[in-house]
């Protein structure tokens, strides 16, 4: 049985709701990439739906390389005790981008960073999109992608070398505290030093 929210969703967004299916009792809604944020915002606030709790954000890549990458949002309404799963399919040939939902749920912050880290999906509008589980200079790619071998791309020796070269306190600086916004707050001399590349370089 599909979720009772589906008719409302279809009425509100029409063609943006691509398809609806049920798997193991859970309703799955596929929405288009450009309307995903609107759909989620509507689901969060619309009276009668109120999926106010973001259970999870993740992504799925299928073994069949033709199939698109899916970003999965698990929503829950705490008051109505109902669930819905919203999926956004991303064509692998296009840039992997989707609107961030951090402005709706603060809890999405780290979840989206994790998806970015492990799948390489960019969330536009995310305040601080950095790698979270792997280190900042990790060079091998996105580990949960299917074209990423289980043991990584590099040899063990190279991995060890790179890991040891990664400075454990490299981010122990103001720049690190919040990379996205720190630069503007830096004192002018530090900004100049950064621009000169004394502590690193901007790109």
């Amino acid at each position: 049985m599909t979720s009772p929210s589906i008719p409302g969703l279809r009425a509100e967004f029409g063609p943006a709701v691509e398809r609806v299916l049920v798997s193991c009792g859970d309703t799955i809604v596929y929405v288009t990439r450009d309307r995903s944020h609107d759909v989620l915002a509507w689901l969060k606030d619309a009276p009668g739906h109120q999926f106010n709790y973001l259970t999870d954000v993740t992504a799925v890549e299928y073994r069949d390389s033709e199939l698109p990458l899916e970003v999965v949002y698990q929503l829950r309404s705490l008051s109505r005790k109902a669930d819905i799963r919203v999926k956004v399919a991303l064509d692998k040939r296009a840039p992997l981008q989707v609107r961030s939902v951090v402005d709706l749920w603060r809890g999405a912050d780290w979840l989206e960073r994790e998806v970015y880290d492990l799948f390489g999906i960019t969330f536009t509008g995310h305040p601080d999109l950095r790698r979270i589980l792997m280190w900042e200079t990790y060079a091998e790619g996105y580990p949960l992608r299917k074209d990423f071998p289980l043991r990584g791309h590099f040899s063990r020796a190279e991995q060890t070398r790179q890991a040891l070269a990664a400075n454990p306190e490299a981010h122990y600086s103001l720049e690190e505290l919040s990379i996205a916004e720190a630069f503007d707050e830096l004192p002018p001399d530090m900004r100049q030093r950064l621009a000169r590349g004394e502590r690193g370089y901007l790109k």
């Binding site: 792997m134 280190w135 060890t160 890991a163 040891l164 070269a165 454990p168």
Partner: peptide, 9 residues
Amino acid sequence: FKLAPVIRR
């Protein structure tokens, strides 16, 4: 690997 430099330190 992320912890490797820490234990070395």
